[in-house]
């Protein structure tokens, strides 16, 4: 076998014969060289509230220029964006939007940040990296919403230009990652620790799926791990599941489940525990010290913000986050 290559970007470690595509569909061995098939070709380009990512402790009330290309390193049965994440690049409608154009668009639309999101940004790593370098020079922040399924070297390289990351911690067992996501838990935990070490602002999202990852003992274990290894200040978003893709047989997550999960995480020591995809007081940020509402939200919209210079305006205690 001649001219085989191995992709070293994610733990899948695809070894590709000539002409073969990677598992994520976004890379190809062409004449013995590995190429990205999606560089500068996003299939989704939008201006979103930063709260949609979700980031609740990072420049609240601002907008993020958001891009994605086709492809994903995982194959989650519950994927909420499967039409593009599980598609081949050639099967999606794309724009021609090179990195410098992404940044100039972000400036033109008065976005404080660029978010690499919707699918899995690891698959368009080179595009994300080049864009992030230009954005940093122009004072635009870089953020990503990722599954955290990426190897250490590329993640540390990227972290130098990444201001914030929201990582999907989809479950807390190897069995869940293996059966439901075609992946593994350990690399995701490693990525979380690396991002923390590199000083990237970190938030975590967990989609609560009835019967699959809503066991409270498991949630408690996950929350304790976060508090111990990342810190109790790391915000976690428990999102409501809706039946999509290959999991249309399950019901939407009941509100009672989300409330129980939230309480479990707070009892385990986490200070900022949110509920998403449903209207609830769990969308709001509360001061860990005086317990007053600091940021009142309605969906993606900020109604009130009582954080000033990173401090609670009621009791003056510091609130973890990037506020300006």
């Amino acid at each position: 076998m001649a001219k085989r290559v191995q992709c070293e970007l994610c733990p899948n470690g695809c070894i590709l014969e000539l002409g073969q595509h990677s598992k994520c569909r976004a890379r190809m061995n062409k004449d013995g060289t590995l190429y990205s098939l999606v560089y500068g070709k996003p299939c989704a380009v939008h201006v979103d509230p930063i709260e949609k990512k979700p980031f609740f402790h990072f420049l609240p009330g601002t907008t993020a220029f958001s891009i994605a290309t086709a492809g994903c390193v995982l194959s989650c049965k519950f994927c909420q964006n499967w039409q593009i994440s599980q598609a081949k690049p050639e099967d999606t409608d794309t724009y021609d939007l090179p990195p410098e154009k992404v940044v100039s668009n972000a400036v033109a639309y008065k976005c404080r940040s660029i978010t690499y999101t919707y699918t899995e940004p690891t698959v368009f790593y080179e595009y994300m990296y080049d864009t992030a370098v230009i954005a940093r020079k122009q004072g635009i922040k870089n953020t990503m919403h990722s599954c955290g399924y990426i190897n250490e070297k590329p993640l540390r390289t990227l972290s130098k230009f990444m201001d914030a990351a929201d990582i999907d911690l989809k479950g807390f067992t190897e069995d869940f990652y293996s059966r439901i996501c075609s992946g593994s838990l350990r690399p995701v935990l490693n990525a979380l620790v690396i991002l923390k070490e590199e000083g990237v602002w970190l938030e975590i999202t967990n989609l609560v799926i009835p019967t699959l990852n809503d066991d409270l003992n498991n949630v408690r274990e996950m929350s304790r791990w976060i508090a111990k290894n990342l810190g109790a200040d790391v915000p976690i978003h428990f999102s409501r599941f809706f039946p999509h893709y290959k999991l249309t047989n399950l019901p939407p997550t009941p509100l009672e489940t989300l409330e129980a999960v939230r309480k479990t995480a707070m009892d385990a020591g986490l200070k900022f525990v949110y509920i998403g995809n449903i209207r609830h007081e769990g969308e709001n940020t509360f001061c860990p010290k005086c317990k007053k509402v600091l940021i009142e939200r309605m969906g993606y919209f900020v109604k009130q913000n009582h954080i000033s210079n990173g401090k609670c305006t009621f009791c003056s205690s510091a609130v973890a986050g990037v506020w300006s």
């Binding site: 290559v5 191995q6 992709c7 070293e8 970007l9 890379r27 190809m28 062409k30 060289t33 590995l34 190429y35 990205s36 098939l37 560089y39 500068g40 070709k41 996003p42 380009v45 724009y95 021609d96 939007l97 090179p98 154009k101 668009n105 790593y125 080179e126 595009y127 990296y129 190897n151 070297k153 590329p154 390289t157």
Partner: peptide, 16 residues
């Protein structure tokens, strides 16, 4: 976003 002709492929950063 601008619609332009398809450009060349980009070599990946992490591979062997």
């Amino acid at each position: 976003a601008e619609k332009k002709p398809v450009k060349l492929l980009k070599e990946a950063m992490f591979w062997r």
